[in-house]
Design a protein around this nucleic acid. Structure first.
Lengths: 163, 163
DNA sequence: TATTGTTATACTCTATAACTATA
DNA sequence: TATAGTTATAGAGTATAACAATA
């Protein structure tokens, strides 16, 4: 007879399930983002600034796991479209203070609402209990931080990539 | 008072949690794969062939969501190391029959065992119930296939990428 | 001298197109 | 002519390095 443990172990690796799922989720968001005239990176920036304004671009890049140099064209565009404010700090003119404009907030909220509707349709494939546990677990693992994810309970492990 | 629904909706997007988790899982597997002298793609190929041998390279590429052209150097290497058999089908000499050698099976199994141990340490961060529900849900969603993931219950949606 | 932001360059991964051989 | 496999090339996305401004 086959034990419960054997059954559970007969599955794909977590990475082999998680990575393609992530790609599919990004692809699923794509048309929604396009309908709101946002790129993925632009949306990520708006989301980060909606959580909290940022005092430097480097801090923002760090918060979203992006390279410092890569968000610059994104910020240029968002600023030109008046979705973010980006002003030099008077007390340290090297620094750029970043925050959402009210229009930026509006665009972000409406985009996120559409994305949540998409996610709800997707999660409908799971029974209600599992659905809650799944989202909760995902959130929990996401909070862990790079090094604990890469080598749980363990030593150093490989460095975090810039993104 | 805040409703349960509001609390649940105050979270990151699924993609924003899933994609970084996937990257971390890949990074976590990296040292294990290196210790077994395998690249990620080599491991993916071994895993696919362990599930079922493949009659053509194209079918294998398709099964693992890879480009036909990209697995070729991987197969060259695995063959040179006697981890896979790769012989021309006598009935159609265009075709390459692919299967694991017994050494390939051994390497794959021992690598997967190490990866499972890593995953277990990681999943220890979740309560036992959630852990089971999480893995079960991940498996369920993974079975859905690209188009259902991208536009659940919906229309066409963007094409699947080659990988 | 150190740091923020920026620009220019290089690199990695992936996809596309062109070629060979079989059918 | 169509298909499997292969090779060579081009493209996207990303990271690295060098630079200007400010502290």
């Amino acid at each position: 007879m086959t034990s419960r443990r054997d059954i559970e172990d007969d599955r794909r690796d977590l990475a082999a399930m998680t990575v393609p799922l992530g790609r599919a989720l990004m692809a699923g968001e794509q048309p929604i983002l396009a309908a709101h005239d946002l790129t993925m990176w632009a949306y990520i920036v708006l989301a980060a600034l909606s959580r909290s304004p940022s005092r430097t671009q480097a801090a923002l890049a760090d918060a979203i796991g992006a390279d410092r140099t890569r968000i610059i064209p994104v910020l240029d565009d968002l600023q030109a479209r008046r979705l973010i404010d980006r002003t030099a700090d008077p007390t340290d003119r090297r620094v750029r203070l970043l925050s959402l404009t009210s229009e930026g907030q509006r665009v972000f909220r409406s985009t996120r609402t559409a994305i949540r509707a998409y996610e709800r349709r997707l999660l409908d494939h799971l029974p209600a209990n599992d659905r809650r546990a799944f989202v909760r677990s995902l959130a929990r693992l996401s909070e862990l931080g790079w090094s604990e994810l890469v080598s749980p309970g363990g030593q150093a492990g490989p460095d975090s990539p810039t993104r």
